[in-house]
Design a binder for these strands. Structure first.
Length: 489
RNA sequence: GUCCCCAUCGUCCAGAGGUCAGGACGCUGGCCUUUCAAGCCGGUAACAGGGGUUCGAAUCCCCUUGGGGACACCA
């Protein structure tokens, strides 16, 4: 049987470094074994999935150099590769499960479930569905469904016994069935949840090895029970360790730049990022850490992946990146710089912003240097970000809140578009809501983003700089401010 | 809280019963150098604790502790 693996991102946000991490190991495993690497888009959450996000993920995965053999944009023998286009398949499979008695319709309202949950919390009981609709007769269930009453389909999890499955890296993992919830498989909008879609697709697409993050271990028994109910052979499971923040918690936007676009914009080379990601759980040799993708494929052994809890450390990534830069040819470096941000297109974007302030051509660089740098060191001018009457810590707090809000749903349930006018409108409203003078907030922001107090118009600048670099700079500024001693009274 | 996973320098990774516990980043001392990097040489620093098993445990087993993840009509 030929090895087939997949990466199955959900297009609900920025292309995540964790996606690249898991994709890398899947890719290498496939190549090592002469198998296929499939890209499948898990967009069954219709309220959060967007095409923009999907496109960004595809672009970013290609940027790190992990090309897939089958996927939504290039097709393949097992398509479609976008789950939203496979809704009918899942519906049929849910029906099969109902017919086999392995799943049942649940007519409980959101209100009842909320109340149930509240009661369980109050009584400190285990959370989970109480199985009310599980005992409905088939006749009644059919009748209510036919009458148009909304329902979901739930997995009828066995109530006794254990579900045991082998994990390639961890050995046998055992769960008592009694502790596993009757998971929703098909939502009331007719779309499947991850659990159903993932099992059905992995089977239909001939996936032999599921290499995914550790966070999925606790829902694996549900998947195993589904494979059994369908009478299918389950794939082999390989749960990779989770990337961590410095404090060992699961890597997150709040504590780490998590978007692949950040790394690209900050000047990290894709081969260095790949290499670094590979180091998170695998090594080519005891005394060696720099290697190419090809070398990794040749030497890779999935059983030698470590199960520790790797902390994603920017400092080491940057060092590795420097090694790559120093070792490439001069011509190659020039090409890289040109295709990075020293391009005609990016000069074209920056130029209108600095042109009015230019008196000589050489002013271009002096006036716009911050468009071409990565992170900023805010310490030297941190005090300047603090307006009269404000404290460093409250300035830090407002900046942090600001940059977090920029990423949250705003108008039309979308986050603030990273575009001049939208940013300005949002920012003015934000300042007003927080009781800050526009001037106070904008100057703090200006210094945070550019490191200067005299710059081109702020929001146009942010637009050109881009969301990722801007977010990191504002966040770093906030950190610096918070670490500042309070002003003497 | 319940269930599950994990545990070697501050961080990443070596170590597959017998090693002075190794490499890298960081930090640090020195050399080189007009400076800063880079480079080179050196230093710092770890087997969480307790029980077993064994002639012998970082390596195997158990317990404790610690950390993490999951407990949605999100993935």
């Amino acid at each position: 049987m030929t090895v087939r693996v997949r990466i199955a991102p959900s297009p609900t946000g920025d292309p995540h470094v964790g996606t690249a991490y898991i994709a890398l190991f899947n890719y290498v495993f496939a190549r090592k074994n002469g198998g296929q690497f499939i890209l499948r888009i898990e967009d069954t959450d219709r309220t959060r999935s967007t095409l923009e996000s999907e496109a960004a993920i595809l672009r970013a995965l290609r940027w790190v150099g992990l090309e897939w053999d089958e996927g939504p944009d290039k097709g393949g023998p097992h398509g479609p590769y976008r789950q939203s286009e496979r809704a009918e398949i899942y519906r049929q499979h849910a029906q099969m499960l109902i017919d086999k008695g392995a799943a049942y319709r649940c007519f409980c309202t959101a209100e009842r479930l909320a109340e149930l949950r509240k009661r369980q919390m109050a009584e400190k009981k285990n959370l989970g569905y109480d199985g009310l609709c599980r005992d409905l007769s088939r006749e009644e269930s059919d009748k209510r469904a036919a009458a148009g009453e909304p329902f979901v389909v739930r997995l009828a999890m066995p109530r006794e016994g254990d579900t045991v499955f082998p994990d390639r890296l961890r050995g046998e993992i055992k769960f008592a069935n009694a502790g596993v919830d009757d998971q929703v498989l098909l939502k009331s909008d007719g779309f499947p949840t991850y659990h159903l879609a993932n099992v059905v697709d992995d089977h239909l697409m001939g996936i032999t090895h599921v290499i995914r993050a550790e966070e999925w271990i606790s829902s694996t028994p549900k998947h195993v029970v589904l494979y059994q109910a369908f009478g299918w052979q389950a794939p082999e499971f390989v749960h990779m360790p989770l990337l961590r923040n410095k404090d060992k918690s699961k890597i997150s936007k709040r504590k780490n730049p998590v978007s692949l676009d950040y790394y690209r914009d900050a000047g990290i080379l894709p081969e260095a990022l790949r290499n670094f990601l590979a180091l998170m759980g695998w090594s080519i040799a005891a005394d060696r850490e720099k290697f190419t993708l090809q070398e990794m494929i040749e030497a890779f052994d999935i059983d030698r992946v470590s199960t520790g809890e790797p902390v994603f450390d920017l400092v080491k990534l940057i060092d590795l990146n420097g090694q790559y830069i120093r070792e490439m040819s001069e011509d190659e470096l020039v090409e890289r710089l040109l295709s990075w941000r020293l391009s005609k297109e990016s000069f074209r974007k920056v130029m209108p912003l600095v042109r009015e302030r230019m008196k000589t051509l050489s002013d271009f660089i002096a006036l716009g240097d911050f468009f071409f740098t990565g992170d900023l060191d805010h310490k030297p001018f941190a005090a300047a970000m603090v307006s009269k009457g404000r404290t460093p810590s409250e300035t830090g707090k407002i900046l942090q809140e600001y940059i977090e809000k920029v990423d949250e749903p705003w108008k039309e349930a979308r986050r603030v578009p990273f575009e001049d006018k939208a940013l300005e409108e949002f920012s003015r409203t934000f300042a007003e809501e927080k009781g800050w003078k526009v001037k106070e907030l904008f100057m703090a922001l200006r210094l945070a983003v550019t490191g200067k107090s005299a710059t081109p118009p702020l929001f146009a600048t942010m637009e050109v700089l881009g969301r990722e670099l801007t977010r990191k700079r504002v966040r770093d500024a906030a950190e610096t401010l918070k670490a500042l001693p309070p002003p003497k009274a």
